[in-house]
Amino acid sequence: MLEGKVKWFNSEKGFGFIEVEGQDDVFVHFSAIQGEGFKTLEEGQAVSAEIVEGNRGPQAANVTKEA
């Protein structure tokens, strides 16, 4: 698991990027966000996630919002 913060997230398109210190930004799709209801993230929000290899490079999986 790694910790980072949301760089930006487009709720209409359902994707965005997470900033991780010392690494390239990581793509995040709404389907990777854990929880019930409408899955979205806010800019600057702290999150933790796993990194997996997607079709277009590294992407976030099992994204959870930090308190």
Rank of each mutant, 00 (worst) to 15 (best):
N10P: 00
A67H: 11
E53C: 15
V28D: 03
E50A: 11
G22R: 03
V28S: 02
V52N: 05
F30C: 08
E42M: 13
V47N: 01
S11K: 15
Q59R: 10
K65A: 10
K65F: 12
K65S: 09
E66W: 13
N62S: 10
Q59L: 08
H29I: 06
Q59H: 09
T40V: 08
Q45Y: 06
R56C: 13
E42N: 10
K39P: 05
E50W: 13
D24V: 12
V26R: 01
S31P: 01
E50T: 13
E50D: 10
L41M: 05
T64Y: 13
G14S: 03
Q34N: 13
G16T: 03
V28W: 04
G14K: 01
K7P: 00
G54K: 07
E50Y: 14
S31R: 08
T64Q: 13
G35T: 09
A46M: 13
E19L: 12
L41T: 00
G44D: 05
F9L: 00
I51N: 04
N10D: 10
N62A: 09
V52P: 01
N10F: 06
I51Y: 08
T64W: 14
E36Q: 11
K5H: 11
E3V: 15
E42W: 13
G16K: 01
E66S: 14
G35I: 07
E42R: 14
L2Q: 08
E3L: 15
K13D: 01
F30Y: 12
F30H: 07
F17Y: 07
E3C: 15
Q34T: 11
N55K: 15
G22W: 05
H29S: 03
G16W: 04
H29E: 04
F17N: 00
T64K: 14
A49K: 02
K65C: 10
K7M: 03
E36F: 12
D25E: 05
F17P: 00
F17M: 08
D24Q: 13
F27Q: 01
V47E: 00
A67V: 12
T64C: 10
A49L: 15
N55I: 14
G54N: 06
V20M: 09
G22H: 06
L2M: 11
V63W: 02
E19M: 13
D24C: 14
F38A: 06
K5M: 08
G37N: 06
I51F: 06
V47F: 04
T64S: 10
N62H: 10
G54A: 06
R56F: 12
F15C: 05
Q23R: 14
F38T: 05
V20L: 10
S48V: 12
L2F: 14
F38K: 05
T40G: 05
I51P: 03
Q45W: 10
G22Y: 06
K7A: 04
R56M: 09
I33P: 04
V20R: 08
F27K: 02
E3Y: 15
Q34G: 08
E36M: 11
G35P: 02
K65L: 12
A60C: 06
I18L: 09
G22F: 07
V28I: 08
Q59T: 08
E3A: 14
V26F: 05
P58H: 08
S48E: 07
E12K: 15
R56G: 08
G57C: 07
G57S: 06
V63H: 02
I18K: 01
F9S: 00
F27M: 01
Q45G: 06
K65Q: 08
I18Q: 00
Q23C: 12
N10V: 05
G35Y: 08
E12S: 14
S48T: 14
F38P: 08
Q45P: 00
E3W: 15
V20Y: 06
S11E: 07
M1K: 15
N62V: 10
A60S: 03
V52Q: 08
G16S: 01
F38D: 06
S31Y: 07
V26P: 01
S31Q: 06
E53G: 09
A32I: 04
G44I: 03
V52A: 08
N55R: 15
G35R: 00
F15H: 05
E36N: 11
D25R: 06
E19Q: 12
E53H: 14
M1T: 12
I33V: 08
G16M: 04
A60H: 02
F27W: 05
G14V: 02
Q45D: 12
E12N: 12
E36L: 11
A67P: 13
P58L: 12
E53W: 15
T40D: 05
S31L: 08
K39G: 04
G22L: 04
K13G: 04
F30N: 02
V6S: 01
Q59P: 04
A46P: 10
H29G: 03
Q34L: 14
G35A: 09
K5A: 04
A46S: 11
K65W: 09
G16R: 02
A67N: 12
E36C: 14
E66V: 15
W8Y: 08
E66C: 15
V47M: 03
K39S: 04
N55D: 12
L41D: 02
F9E: 00
D25K: 06
G14W: 04
E50R: 13
E21W: 12
G37I: 05
V20T: 05
E66H: 15
T40F: 12
E43I: 15
Q45F: 06
A46I: 14
V28C: 07
S48D: 04
V52G: 05
I51H: 03
K65P: 10
K5D: 00
K5G: 01
I33Y: 03
F27C: 08
E36I: 11
R56V: 07
E21T: 11
G54C: 10
V28Q: 02
K7V: 06
A67R: 11
E43R: 15
K7H: 04
Q45L: 07
E66Q: 15
A61H: 11
H29Q: 03
W8Q: 00
Q59W: 13
S31F: 07
E42L: 13
G22N: 08
A60N: 03
I18F: 02
I18C: 03
T40H: 08
D24I: 12
E36K: 12
G37W: 07
K65E: 05
Q59G: 03
E53M: 15
E19F: 11
V52L: 08
K13L: 10
E53L: 14
Q23A: 10
A32E: 07
D25T: 07
Q23V: 09
I18N: 00
A46K: 14
P58F: 11
K65D: 04
G4K: 01
G14E: 00
E43S: 14
M1A: 10
Q45I: 09
K5E: 02
E19N: 08
A67T: 12
F9I: 00
D25I: 08
N10S: 11
N55E: 12
E19S: 14
A46L: 14
K39W: 06
A61C: 12
Q23Y: 15
F17A: 01
L41W: 03
F15P: 01
K5I: 13
G14A: 01
F30K: 06
G35Q: 09
T64P: 03
D25S: 07
S48P: 02
G22Q: 04
M1D: 05
E36G: 10
G4C: 08
G57N: 04
A32Q: 09
M1I: 13
A61D: 06
E43W: 13
I33N: 02
G54V: 05
A32W: 07
E50L: 13
G4D: 00
E21S: 10
M1N: 09
A61Y: 10
E43Q: 15
E53N: 13
S11D: 06
A32Y: 06
G4Y: 07
L41Y: 01
E12M: 13
A32F: 06
G54Q: 05
K13A: 08
V63R: 02
G37K: 05
M1Q: 11
A49P: 02
G57P: 04
M1R: 15
F38I: 06
R56Q: 09
E3F: 15
G57E: 01
A60T: 03
Q59A: 08
G54S: 10
E53I: 15
V20I: 14
Q23N: 09
S11N: 10
A46Q: 13
E12P: 07
F17Q: 01
V26E: 00
S11M: 10
L2T: 10
I33S: 03
R56S: 09
N55W: 15
A46D: 07
K39N: 06
F27T: 01
E43F: 12
D24K: 14
E3K: 15
A61N: 09
G37A: 06
L41S: 01
Q34K: 11
E19H: 11
F30W: 15
T64F: 13
A46H: 13
K5V: 12
E3G: 10
I18G: 00
G4T: 02
A49W: 13
V20D: 01
K7T: 05
A46R: 15
G16Y: 04
H29Y: 07
K5T: 10
A32N: 08
N10G: 02
E50N: 12
V52E: 07
F15V: 06
H29C: 09
G16D: 00
Q59C: 09
S31A: 06
G4V: 04
G4Q: 01
E42S: 13
E19K: 12
M1G: 09
N62T: 10
E12Q: 14
L41E: 02
F15G: 00
E53K: 13
I51T: 04
F9Y: 09
V6G: 01
H29N: 02
A32P: 02
K39I: 06
K5L: 09
E43K: 15
A32L: 03
I18V: 05
A60G: 05
G22I: 03
E53F: 15
F38L: 07
V6F: 03
A61W: 10
N10Q: 05
V20W: 08
E42G: 09
G37V: 05
